[in-house]
Amino acid sequence: MPQIAQLAATYSSQIFWLLITFGLVFFVIGLGMVPKIQSTVEARDSKIAGDLAEAKAAFARADEIEAQQRAKDADNRAAAQAMVAEAKAKAAKASEKQIATADAKIAEKISAAEASIRAASVSALQEIEAVSADAARDMVAKISGAQATPEAAAAAVKAALAHG
């Protein structure tokens, strides 16, 4: 086994060169280069973390704005609905008034018409009475030859008409 057989002859040179090479590795690479690499990694990590936090904040802000927008929307809608309801109520009142005035006019017209109808029917009845009295006097004169007075005839006709 050369590790043992050559130990006495080679241990000093092995240790010497190991210290030289490993020392170089430690001081040049370990102390000189590794911290720089690590700082690069750390800078990247912190940048990523910062960007993520920024994105999260932006998200939160967007959410907030959306909520505000939504609240505004709801307010606007409520206001619009109130306006619509008010307008509806106003319109209903106006149309009610109109209907009432129209009703009154119509009722007036109807009552006037009724009055004229009644007057017409009264005058028609009087005419019928007069005609009937004449006819009755004629009938009395023809049948009995007696002359009935217009007053008697009218009274008779009135009585007959009252009986239906």
Binding site: A9, T10, S12, S13, Q14, W17, L18, T21, F22
Partner: peptide
């Protein structure tokens, strides 16, 4: 007083470095 000859072992240490 110690031998510090450059051996094949030292060569591979340098290569590794």
């Amino acid at each position: 007083g110690h031998n510090i000859a450059f051996t094949n072992s030292a060569l591979w240490m340098v290569a590794t470095t």
